[in-house]
Nucleic acid binder design. Structure first.
Lengths: 114, 114
DNA sequence: TTAACATATGAACAAATGCTCATATGAAGA
DNA sequence: TCTTCATATGAGCATTTGTTCATATGTTAA
């Protein structure tokens, strides 16, 4: 197969780094959070909720998408515990569940803007 | 089309939020960074580079993937300016380009571990 | 109970994504 | 120069993902 593995690897460095890598479950959970923010339309929803809660209909207007598309995306964000909701009559208001998300957003915006 | 847009939106809240949303280019750039970290195998590569540089071959061993798969993913990370590389003879060493990425990783790990 | 309406969800489809396999590139030593 | 080896890359593919359309759910008011 990979002859390289017999010859060129630096075992010490490899062993040392392997110890520092989070376990698979944690890695997948981290990836899931990044995945939630990796789609521009889904990220825009999160950005829309950064300062105040909104109903599905308002989010659809802000994001220029159909209520259905927004609702599907909100379900994903809800499953990942990134947003929470509360019902008020016929209307459902969504807001961010977690301050960590706000930090992630702020940091990546810094990065983009240098 | 969407009758809802004629009736239920809260124009004031919507207008206020629209002003706070980053422009489309920035939003896409932010999403791109998150997308780079959203795939578990690509995230693992970044995690492997968190503390020290490694050659492609070592990364492949650490991540238990073929050199080819790693090389393809490194190209994506290079394009997004998340990793950089230096050549030393036949070997190419990769390391993280940017401290912002380290902060993002650290923060999401915090989030996962509470 | 019935109508109206905000939201949720399942199915289907087009587009994007990650991997594999084969092959190319570029550097070092014989 | 020729061979070896680390890395890079293109094509093809199976899988995943985001959207649309149709329909369901749940709440309010008549």
């Amino acid at each position: 197969m990979d002859i390289c593995q017999e010859k060129c690897i630096n075992r010490e460095k490899v062993e040392k780094t392997i110890k520092t890598i989070p376990n698979p479950e944690e890695t997948i959970q981290m990836a899931d959070i990044f995945k939630a923010l990796s789609d521009p339309s889904r990220l825009k929803i999160v950005l829309a909720l950064l300062n105040q809660e909104h109903c599905v209909c308002d989010i659809a207007v802000i994001c220029k998408q159909t209520n259905s598309a927004i609702s599907h995306q909100l379900r994903i964000l809800r499953t990942l515990k990134i947003v929470k909701n509360r019902r008020e009559g016929k209307t459902v208001y969504y807001s961010l569940e977690d301050d960590h998300v706000i930090s992630l957003i702020t940091m990546s915006l810094d990065h983009v803007r240098h």
